[in-house]
Amino acid sequence: MNNKALIVIDFINDIVHPEGKISQEIAPQVQKNEVIAHANNAIEHFRKQSLPVIFVKVGFSSAYIEQPKNSPIFGLADQYKALELGAWGTEYHKDLDVLTSDYSVVKNRINPFYNTSLATVLSANNIDEVFMCGVSTNWAVHSAVMEAHDRDFKVNVIEDACAAANETNHNASIETLSRVANIVKSTEL
């Protein structure tokens, strides 16, 4: 039997709340497709089985010392005070079922494995199969799935608990990821 964990990526206010600083494209998709509700279904499923649920969020200290200044994605975060750790923007969305006892990984790049404790946590818990959901499908989720695949995990993507800026990007990423991961719906868990 596989040791499983759920990885929930970047459901933070700046990205998925309509008033978030960088949410203009993705927040409507998250709301329209009830993505957080589907993520909560997955979270509930894993909790009922006493399986680990690991939350991931992107963020930078208030000095933005970790911010990649030349990045097309993160390069202006400091100017807009976006993705600032400890601020409302990096809090998990109020509708996401996060408990204070849940483990949270902070990342400074797109990939949740890069320079974080995620691999250590998975290894320490003998996890060999991961289920992933979050935003955006074609950036953070895509990157995490590819990395998990290359680290020899069995990988599953909970498709209806993911979103991108538009359906075209979401569907293209899911199509690509289907070559290295099992694609499931939250109701199929």
Rank of each mutant, 00 (worst) to 15 (best):
T116D: 07
W139G: 09
D150R: 03
A163F: 12
D128T: 15
S136Y: 10
Y114E: 07
E129S: 15
W139V: 13
M132A: 09
V141P: 03
E147C: 09
S143E: 06
F153E: 01
L118F: 05
A119W: 00
V130W: 07
S104C: 13
H149F: 15
N126F: 13
I127Q: 04
T100W: 01
S143D: 03
V145H: 01
F153M: 04
W139K: 12
A124Q: 10
S104W: 01
V145I: 13
E129F: 10
E159Q: 13
A161I: 10
L122V: 05
F153A: 05
T120G: 05
V141Q: 00
R151C: 11
T137I: 12
I158C: 08
F131D: 11
V141H: 05
T120Q: 10
V135T: 08
S117D: 13
S101T: 15
Y114G: 00
S101G: 07
T116C: 09
I110G: 02
G134A: 04
G134Q: 06
S143K: 04
T137G: 13
K107C: 07
G134R: 06
V105S: 02
K154Y: 12
K154C: 02
T100I: 01
E147F: 05
V121M: 08
V135F: 02
V141M: 02
N138Y: 06
V130K: 06
N156M: 12
N138R: 05
A163N: 12
A148K: 05
V145M: 05
V155C: 05
A163G: 13
S104M: 04
K107L: 07
A161H: 01
L122F: 03
D102I: 08
S104G: 06
V130A: 08
A148H: 09
I158A: 06
H149A: 14
D102F: 02
D152W: 00
N111W: 06
M146Q: 12
V121L: 13
E129I: 10
A140H: 04
K154L: 12
V105I: 15
T100A: 03
N156P: 03
V145Y: 00
V121P: 02
N126C: 11
N125C: 10
N108L: 03
I110D: 03
F153V: 07
V155M: 01
N115S: 11
E147A: 14
F153Y: 14
N126D: 14
I127P: 07
C162L: 14
V106A: 01
T120W: 00
N108Q: 10
R109E: 04
E159W: 01
L122T: 04
K154P: 02
Y103R: 07
V106Q: 01
D160G: 14
V157L: 12
C162Q: 12
D150H: 09
A124S: 12
E129G: 12
N108S: 13
F153R: 02
D160Q: 11
T120R: 08
N156G: 09
D102W: 06
V130I: 15
S117E: 14
T137P: 11
F131E: 10
T120A: 09
V157R: 11
A161T: 06
A124R: 04
K154H: 11
F131L: 14
R151N: 14
F113R: 07
S143Y: 03
A161N: 05
N126L: 14
A163Y: 11
A124K: 06
